[in-house]
Design a protein around this nucleic acid. Structure first.
Length: 202
DNA sequence: CACCAGATCCTCT
DNA sequence: GAGGATCTGGTGG
């Protein structure tokens, strides 16, 4: 399976659309984290779109700053930032003059499950990656991975596609989680009946 | 320089 | 379901 993944890396064109288009397309794709010679892989089961313009919850809302500068890269680069003591990872969409992105909120562990359980210090597989901070802890994604090219097989992080497209009725839509601005926008997307999607705390 | 909100998570009740 | 841990960047004085 790993070999098949490595032969099916998603190219930049896939990400070169608006975040609200890219977000649902990313569901069911595989995020691969290479650490030296071994791999951690998770299926993306929940994402959120953050728009390039007019989105008060997006980190680009106040323009280009030290924190948000990676959002102004071209499509297919990472935007890793810290939220309190945790890291979160986005994929940048569209071209550099349109700083939108898609947050990876949850993964279903596929390869390297024992290592990810250890990274997360948990016993239950469902608790490995059901939250954006948990995804980064499980896959050992840190600030140093900000601004890297996820369409390059030589990168430490890239994204692959080996499954058929999800049926539209398998994708559900909801408000974004954990924000206080622009809460009315339905820019959260997740796979229906998937037990690895993050819980709503409220 | 000080303050404070924030795309979170964990440990209790 | 509530509250605390913990920390960095953005903003204003």
């Amino acid at each position: 399976m790993l070999d098949t993944l490595l032969q099916n890396i998603i190219n930049r064109d896939f990400f070169n659309e608006s975040p609200k288009i890219v977000a649902p397309k990313l569901l069911g794709k595989y995020i691969v984290r290479r650490i030296d010679e071994h791999y951690l892989v998770g299926k993306i089961v929940e994402v959120e779109a953050y728009l390039a313009f007019g989105d008060a919850a997006a980190h680009n809302a106040v323009g280009k700053t030290k924190r948000s500068i990676s959002l102004f890269n071209d499509a297919g680069y990472t935007y890793v930032h810290t939220m309190r003591q945790y890291c979160l990872i986005d994929i940048v969409t569209e071209s550099s003059d349109k700083p939108g992105s898609v947050l990876i909120r949850a993964i279903e562990p596929i390869i390297g499950i024992d290592k990810m359980l250890e990274n997360r210090k948990v016993q239950v597989v469902e608790n490995i990656g059901n939250g954006p901070g948990k995804v980064c802890m499980a896959m050992q994604i840190k600030k140093e991975h900000n601004g890297i090219d996820i369409t390059d097989v030589n990168s430490q992080i890239f994204i692959c596609n080996i499954d058929a497209e999800l049926d539209v009725d398998q994708v559900l839509n909801r408000n974004r989680v954990g924000i206080s601005k622009a809460t009315e926008l339905l820019l959260g997307f997740y796979i229906k009946n998937n037990s690895f999607v993050s819980k709503l705390s409220k």
